[in-house]
């Protein structure tokens, strides 16, 4: 006798299989939960709770975090040298940095991947070469320098820094997606599909894009991490968000100035950045592992 219920349940959809495989690694789960927590706290919590990073209160300057002796529960993480609440500055600052980092990375990813795929799938050699190498010159200029040039032309502010970082990430995405797509095109099953008669557009979206998704996602997690660090670096040097707008970079800078007086102000933004980047890397690593199960390695 057959058991249809059990058999039907055993056929899992792609989502279920992916989630089961992802769940197996504890470190990736920790990364996922941390990332969800960070995103909730950074983006969703400020909608309800009134965080106030700008009000200055000179009477309560440089308070330490609330768990030490002189701390005040009003200001959970203390105050900075102008008396502004540090927790609010941290959350709104992280929001600023992450928002622009995600924006820069995603737009650069979309443009870069489409250029890379177009150049891999095109038939004429000149078009392939042009699309592939058109932004290669940006490879040779370090991202911070590109940021300086942009800021010199457009003026110092956070969106301009993000634009510069996005531009500097572009050639890497083009190159990686071109290489991955080229490798896929040499496989036997793609040749079988071409001889079956699928058009190149259909082939791209059905076969090649899903198969190179793991490369794209690993690049994306790297790209977001680089974007966060670079935006913070530009902010540290004073060319990103201008004060009083909080941003992880310029908070680090002002924290370093007062490090002997109040150490927590320098350490906490750094720790926040580490936690964000580590969780993004772990989630990216987990997703790549899920996408690559069942695919035998070539070697």
């Amino acid at each position: 006798m057959f058991d249809l219920n059990r058999e039907a349940r055993e056929i899992q959809s792609d989502k279920d299989i992916a989630w089961e495989i992802y769940k197996k690694s504890t470190t990736d789960m920790i990364g996922l939960y941390t990332l969800i927590l960070c995103i909730c706290v950074i983006f969703i919590l400020p909608i309800w709770v009134n965080f106030d990073p700008l009000t200055q209160n000179v009477a309560e300057r440089l308070l330490p975090p609330s768990w030490s002796d002189r701390g005040n529960l009003h200001h959970f993480l203390g105050t900075d040298e102008f008396g502004r609440d540090f927790l609010s500055r941290l959350l709104i600052g992280a929001q600023n940095t992450t928002k622009y980092a995600f924006l820069a990375c995603f737009s650069s990813l979309i443009i870069g991947t489409s250029l890379g795929l177009m150049s891999a799938m095109s038939r004429s050699r000149t078009r392939k070469g042009v699309l592939h190498h058109i932004f290669d010159i940006l490879f040779s200029i370090p991202s911070i320098l590109i940021a300086f040039i942009t800021i010199g032309i457009l003026g110092a502010s956070l969106p301009h820094a993000a634009l510069a970082i996005g531009v500097s990430l572009l050639p890497r995405f083009i190159h990686e997606s071109y290489c991955a797509a080229k490798k896929e095109l040499e496989k036997e099953y793609v040749r079988a599909e071409i001889s079956d008669g699928s058009s190149r557009l259909h082939l791209t979206f059905t076969t090649i894009l899903p198969n190179i998704l793991s490369t794209i996602i690993s690049n994306m997690s790297q790209g977001i991490s680089i974007a966060i660090i670079d935006i913070a670096a530009v902010g540290y040097l004073g060319f990103g968000a201008q004060p009083p707008t909080p941003e992880l970079g310029n908070m680090l800078a002002s924290g370093i100035d007062i490090i002997y007086v109040s150490t927590s102000k320098a350490i906490i933004p750094g720790v926040a950045m580490i936690v964000l980047i580590a969780s993004i890397q772990l989630v990216g690593h987990g997703i790549c592992r899920v996408l690559n199960t069942g695919v035998a390695d070539a070697a």
């Binding site: 079988a192 599909e193 899903p210 035998a296």
Partner: peptide, 12 residues
């Protein structure tokens, strides 16, 4: 193709 390792799309 009897080289079944490479000739079948493993993702679909």
């Amino acid at each position: 193709s009897s080289d079944y390792n490479n000739a079948i799309n493993p993702h679909k």
